[in-house]
Design a protein around this nucleic acid. Structure first.
Length: 446
RNA sequence: GCCGCCUUCGUCUAGUGGUUAGGACGCUGGGUUUUCAUCCCAGUAAUCACGGGUUCGAAUCCCGUAGGCGGUACCA
């Protein structure tokens, strides 16, 4: 039997990271078994419907590379993949239940008659175990709302069957409702699919992840410059672990070794620090060319796109996400905003302006183009002469050309800046040092 | 309340009767380094929720308890 799995998000907002997480496992499971990955939009809650989120769902799947085989606007012989467009289908099956005396009207809605006797047992692929729920815990539930839209409880069963879904992979908040679904399958005399209930992704307070926690949308991570490979790898490690013990692995490797049985059942907290670390790992693993390409795509309005490639080797080991590129390299393309407090942090006794004048002198006397060894030798000697440490000497030059104490390697930065611009900046600082503003607060908050 | 699921370092996890309970993130210290990073080394941290069993031996099996979470919607 063909493996067919679906990701069924509700367009109620930009999909959060938990949706992406579930999509990953659906996608991997489908690929693992040469099956189909299907997208179905569950837009039956009119009150919570957010039109833009449809595009955001598509953009999220597209970004992560989870291309669906069937779904809205794409193939499939199973009717529309948007539930609001399947209303006559739900109506038809509702009528069938009414005909069988298994459903009835109540306040304008249609309810399913639950058999509350006995227990329901099903096998869950996560944990590879049977779960039993007493039917007495269930009530006659609404299948068709008074507005004519079906409820999740009804629509998911109808659609999963009609779309020939083989494995339902979803969050474990649905376990308690399994008697409802199974009785529905039975009422239609349908064979239920297999079920795999994944643990819940939780926020810092250990409750179900939601906007309440300020849960970011998956696309927020894209905006902040996280790489899809890193996000996928990180997500893969939540609730699941690579049986080979690897922490860093590609989607392809994951597909090879994936098995639902290796899933945990306990709720999982998403640690943003580890994601950041992993993103840094992926950035460092990338070739300079790939990183440059990613940065150019990410920094749409960058003022010096043609220079990005040149700077990449200097920043590759210094950025954890693409957005970090900006504060680290801005000074290369635009005049820094100088802050006297930055210079005062240096342990240089006496007159900084005089030191700067000596630096200018040396720079003017060095033959162009400046050579790294000569540059270093020259300023080490000057530092010795002026009785300041070499470290402070270079930090002073760094601050003079960038306005910052943290930059990519000094000499390489100067090369990108050019000798003339470097000199101009040092001269500017020497000349206007006393007039530089002090913006201590801003510095300390960084 | 009732029903269900879960419970190993702060976090993500390995572990399926015999391990000094391993790894990763984080954190701390050290080395490399003209800054920051990277890289390398070391360390920190889990009485395996608790209490009973079973067993020569239990994180691993059984029972109970507690706690957390989820469900109990004309939300999904």
């Amino acid at each position: 039997m063909e493996v067919r799995v679906r990701i069924a998000p509700s367009p109620t907002g930009s999909p959060h990271i938990g949706t992406a997480w579930q999509a990953l496992f659906d996608y991997v499971f489908a690929k693992k078994h040469n099956g189909k990955f299907i997208l179905r939009l569950e837009d039956t809650d009119r009150a919570r419907f957010v039109p833009e989120s449809v595009d955001q769902i598509h953009e999220t799947l597209e970004w992560l590379g989870f291309e669906y085989d069937e779904g809205p606007g794409k193939g499939g012989n199973f009717g529309p993949y948007i539930q609001s467009e399947r209303r006559e289908i739900y109506k038809k099956y509702t009528d069938k239940l009414i005909g069988k005396d298994l459903a009835y009207e109540s306040d304008g809605a249609i309810r399913f008659k639950m058999n509350k006797e006995g227990k329901t047992t099903y096998h869950d692929l996560v944990g590879d175990k049977d779960i039993t729920i007493e039917n007495s815990t269930q009530d006659d539930f609404v299948i068709l709302k008074s507005d004519g839209f079906p409820t999740y409880n009804f629509a998911n069963v109808i659609d999963d069957h009609l779309m020939q879904i083989s494995h339902v992979i979803r969050g474990n908040e649905y376990i308690s409702s399994m008697p409802k679904y199974l009785q529905l399958y039975k009422a239609f005399d349908w064979t239920p699919p297999q079920f795999a209930h994944l643990p819940l992704l939780v926020g810092s307070d250990r409750s179900k992840l939601s906007k309440r926690h300020g849960a970011k949308s998956a696309l927020d991570y894209k905006k902040e410059g996280y790489l899809k490979q890193a996000v996928i790898n990180f997500l893969a490690l939540l609730g699941w672990s690579n049986p080979e013990g690897k922490e860093i692995f590609s989607l392809e490797e994951m597909i090879k070794v994936f098995d639902l049985k290796d899933f945990n059942q306990a709720s999982v907290y998403f640690d943003p620090q580890k994601l950041e670390w992993m993103n840094g790992e992926y950035i460092r693993m990338m070739s300079d060319e790939d990183l440059a390409q990613n940065l150019r795509e990410y920094l749409v309005d960058h003022p010096a796109k043609d220079k990005i490639g040149e700077v990449v080797p200097l920043v590759k080991e210094r950025i954890k996400k693409l957005a970090d590129f900006i504060p680290l390299t801005n000074f290369l393309w635009q005049k820094p905003e100088y802050d006297r407090a930055v210079f005062e942090k240096l342990k240089i006794d006496g007159d900084i302006q005089k030191v700067l004048d000596r630096i200018i002198e040396k720079m003017q006397s060095m033959g162009k183009p400046w050579k790294a060894e000569e540059f270093e030798k020259t300023f080490r000697e000057l530092a010795g002469e002026l009785k300041i440490s070499a470290g402070d000497m270079f930090q002073l030059i760094r601050a003079a050309i960038s306005g910052q104490l943290v930059t990519p390697p000094l000499f390489e930065s100067i090369q990108i800046l050019g000798e003339d611009e470097t000199l101009r900046r040092v001269e500017y600082v020497a000349r206007s040092y006393q007039d530089l503003p002090k913006l201590v607060e801003r510095i300390e908050s960084e």
